[in-house]
Design a protein around this nucleic acid. Sequence first.
DNA 1: TTGGAGTGTCAACAAAGCTGACGTATTGTG
DNA 2: CACAATACGTCAGCTTTGTTGACACTCCAA
Lengths: 165, 165
Amino acid sequence: MGEGMRSESLLYLTDEQLRQGIEAMYFAYRGFTADPDRILESMAYGRAHHRAIHFINRAPGTTVTNLLAILGVTKQSLNRVLRTLIEDGLVESRVGTSDRRERNLYLTEAGVTLEHRLSDSQRERMRKAFRDAGPDAVSGFRRVLEAMMDGELHRQYLSLRDTGQ
Amino acid sequence: MGEGMRSESLLYLTDEQLRQGIEAMYFAYRGFTADPDRILESMAYGRAHHRAIHFINRAPGTTVTNLLAILGVTKQSLNRVLRTLIEDGLVESRVGTSDRRERNLYLTEAGVTLEHRLSDSQRERMRKAFRDAGPDAVSGFRRVLEAMMDGELHRQYLSLRDTGQ
DNA sequence: TTGGAGTGTCAACAAAGCTGACGTATTGTG
DNA sequence: CACAATACGTCAGCTTTGTTGACACTCCAA
C-alpha cells in the first residue's frame, strides 16, 4: 500500500473499502433474490425457473441455445427447468419455422402472469433502494456493476439493455 | 406512465430503469463470483466453503451458531462444509474456554493462505470496478446496495463493517 | 445421398441447500 | 442435586440445480 497515490480517487481503494464492497455485494444479493424466492417456494419452483421466465419474457421466441448462452448453464440443466414450465403450461415451445431443429420459446398467459408477480416484487425492492439512495447514487450503482462484469457478461447485458424500449 | 411525476428524481424510477438495474445486478453478481469459483473448483470446494472461510477470517474465534446466523443456512448444511474444511486442515475448531459447549473456529495457516488467494482475486475485480467507475460512483454503489438489504441483513452488514479497522 | 455439425432430450450423478430426529456434553436454574 | 435448556454434531432422506454421457432428429454441404 501507498506506492504513489497521486490522485484523490485512489484513496477510495483501500483494502478496507474493497472488503466492504464485497460484503455489501453479498448481503445485497441475498436481499435482491429474497422476494421472488418466497413466491417461488410456494410453488415447486426455484431461482432457475425465475431466470428462464425472465429472459423468455424479455425476448419472446428466443431459442434454447440462445437462452443457454445468456444463463450460462448446460442445456441439460436448462432443459429440466424448461420441461416443468412447459408441462405446467407457463411456457410454450414451438418448432422453429425456418430451422426446424430450433424451438422458439414463448410465455403463455399464465406464464406472463407469474412473470409479473415475480418482477413486480423485485422491481419494488429496486425502486425502494433507488429512492432511498437518491438519483445520484443510481448512476454510480450501475456504473460499478457494469465494470464488475466480464467482457462476455457485459456484452450480453448491453445487448439486452438495448432491446428495451 | 406519466401520472404526475413532479420531481426530477422520479424520472429515474421508470420500469425500464428498474429492469436495467435488476439485470445489472444479475450479471454483475455472476462476474463477482466468477474468480473465486474458478479457484475453488480446482480443489473439491464450492461457494459454500468460500463463505465459511471468509467469515471465519473476518471474525476469528466465532462460534458455529454465530456463523449460522450470518450465513443464513441450517447447521446440517454448514456442518458438512465445516467438516471437510477441518479434515483438510484449513479450519481449526477449539472447545470454548468460558463455555465449553461452544466451538471457536479459526483458520489455520493453510486456511489463511487460501483465504488470501480467494479474496485477492475478488478484491482485484472490485478494485478494477471502482477504478473504472470513478470515486463518485463508489458511494452511490454502496448506498443502493445497503438500501437493497432487508432489515436483518442490513444489521449484520453494519455490525461486520464496524468491526473492520 | 451421406456424413458431419447443430439442436434438443433422456438418464444418471454430484454439490449444497432443506427438514426431522436424536445423542452428547455442558450450563444454568428451581 | 435434578432437570430443563443450550450448543454442537450426526444420521437419514428429500429437493433444486448444476454436471457428463449417450442418443435422436434436422439441416446442409460435399
